[in-house]
């Protein structure tokens, strides 16, 4: 976890980090939204289809198996505006986890899930897919430190 005093410092470090790990970066951020004219399953499957040329059927089956882990198989045909904040976070996290050897970076998680008080939800969401990424880094502000209890600095 990386905590910063202000927006400028965070944005600069995040930009550098993204540049350093461009090939394996799986970014979860409001600045990297889900594509609004694709449904949830296509948004996630896109990564495997594009980079690994996985067939649409296989990619969809894989995505469905991951969504099932979260108990979110019912949202596979929904689009971004129809999702709750927690659902959106999980979908963005899954999309990031689809990158091969992914280094997941969660940019200011509480801006994506503002209704969540502490990091338990983030911790649990990461734990469910911890077999599908190499590292995970959280970028947030210093003043959010108190909200993190389960994820250590």
């Amino acid at each position: 976890m990386r905590l910063f005093e202000g927006e400028v410092a965070l944005d600069e470090r995040l930009k550098d980090f993204a540049e350093e790990h461009k090939k394996t970066l799986g970014l979860v951020s409001l600045d990297v939204p889900l594509i609004s004219n694709l449904d949830v399953s296509v948004n996630i499957a896109l990564i495997k289809q594009y980079h690994e040329n996985l067939s649409a059927d296989k990619a969809q089956a894989l995505v469905l198996s991951y969504l099932t882990r979260y108990g979110l198989e019912d949202i596979s045909n929904k689009r971004n505006p129809a999702l709750t904040n927690k659902e959106r976070f999980c979908v963005m996290l899954l999309r990031a986890a689809m990158v091969r050897d992914s280094i997941i970076v969660i940019d200011r998680p509480f801006t994506i899930i503002p209704d969540v008080k502490d990091d338990r939800f983030i911790y649990d969401a990461l734990k469910i897919v911890d077999d599908s990424f190499r590292e995970c880094h959280i970028f947030d502000y210093l003043w959010s430190k108190d909200r993190y209890g389960m994820i250590t600095v």
Binding site: L25, L27, P33, I35
Partner: peptide, 15 residues
Amino acid sequence: MKVNKELNTLDKFNI
């Protein structure tokens, strides 16, 4: 897509 920064999404995922 441009206004919603969705093109940025493609770029960040090397698409």
